[in-house]
């Protein structure tokens, strides 16, 4: 089915649409930034922003050109792969972003590699033995985990493992990660903190989606025909639940790139979420745009994958 022309047509279609979505987001972000009070010059000067000083700095930074023109030329640059320079520190955005993007992706990658298998297994198992003590235990545990604010989990983890037990470093970045052991130690706490939240979400959604398909007539039919419970779930219910599960997983994972500001802050881990916050608070348009594009691309990639899985897993949707 992967070789069929319709699938490729579909992929091509989705890519075009994704490209248009990006463009729309880019314009939306531009207008949103324009709505914000103050500009780079004002914010950089802070309390020292007298009108003359602001005017002088604006001119020096090239901000006296109309914002929309600046945005268009940034967009033109992006088309050639040039993300421009930060207004604030005049560093190439590619340079500013690359290191931190790698950090973010690495963290997200580790969390994904742990969470997806664990959550799918637990979620499906809970659905399979729905109503059992195992199911209830998993349910209560998952809700309890996500009910505790993330900053509290993170702070508590640092307090216990770094301050009291002295097993792990309190900071994830800046410690010498020259060995595998050191790297594991450095990543342990952020990964655990994020895994709690992400796993809990995915387990619950997987469980719910599988249970719902168990209730559908044809799975009930299979059960009547004498299929075993596990066979019923894995062979009949799961493929049909794959679409919704993939979507839920994609939504959970999309949070890992741009939404982990608390973890980045508490563990002093330089990623793109903090970069975006900095960019917004200094009104650094090229940087805001670049970060927004990164988030958007990662989000679109994930949901497109999810849509593909949904379509491929349901034969009736492929037509």
């Amino acid at each position: 089915m992967l070789r069929s022309p319709t699938t490729w047509l579909l992929v091509g279609q989705r890519l075009t649409i994704a490209f248009i979505t990006l463009l729309i987001v880019s314009f939306a972000v531009f207008f949103a930034t324009e709505l914000l009070p103050g500009d780079v010059a004002q914010i950089l000067l802070g309390q020292a922003a007298t009108p003359e000083a602001v005017a002088g700095l604006r001119e020096a930074m090239g901000l006296d050109r109309p914002a929309f023109l600046r945005f268009l030329s940034w967009l033109g640059g992006l088309a050639t792969g040039d993300m421009g320079r930060s207004y604030v520190n005049d560093i190439e955005i590619a340079e500013l972003v690359s290191g931190r993007l790698v950090n973010s992706l690495r963290l997200a990658g580790i969390v994904t590699a742990i969470c997806v298998p664990v959550s799918l297994t637990l979620g499906i198992a809970a659905a399979m033995w729905r109503g059992s003590w195992f199911d209830r235990g998993v349910s209560i545990m998952t809700i309890s985990f996500i009910s505790v604010p993330e900053f509290m989990v993170a702070t508590l983890a640092v307090l216990i493992f770094a301050v009291w037990l002295d097993w792990l470093p309190a900071l994830s970045y800046g410690v010498n990660v020259d060995s595998l052991g050191a790297m594991l130690r450095a990543y342990a706490m952020p990964v655990i903190t994020l895994s709690f939240v992400v796993c809990a979400q995915m387990i619950r959604m997987t469980r719910a989606a599988v249970i719902e398909t168990i209730n559908t007539p044809y799975v009930e039919m299979a059960l009547l025909k004498g299929a075993s419970r596990s066979r019923m779930v894995l062979v009949h219910a799961l493929p049909n639940a794959l679409g919704p599960i993939a979507n839920a997983v994609a939504l959970s994972l999309s949070y890992l790139v741009g939404g982990v500001i608390i973890v980045e802050t508490i563990f002093n881990y330089p990623g793109v979420a903090k970069l975006m916050v900095d960019a917004v608070s200094t009104r650094d348009l090229p940087l805001i745009q670049s970060c927004a594009m990164i988030f958007c691309v990662s989000y679109l990639t994930l949901i497109t994958l999810a849509d593909m899985i949904a379509i491929l897993s349901n034969p009736r949707l492929r037509q």
Binding site: I17, I20, T21, L22, I24, V25, A28, V29, A32, T33, L35, L36, P37, S254, G258, I261, M276, V277, V280, I288, C291, A292, F295, C296, Y299, L300, I303
Partner: peptide, 20 residues
């Protein structure tokens, strides 16, 4: 696609814009 695009706007930026 519209809702995807809406989700593509960082909520921090969205929040600040709303307040402003």
């Amino acid at each position: 696609r519209f809702l995807d695009a809406l989700n593509g706007i960082p909520s921090l930026l969205f929040g600040i814009v709303v307040v402003a």
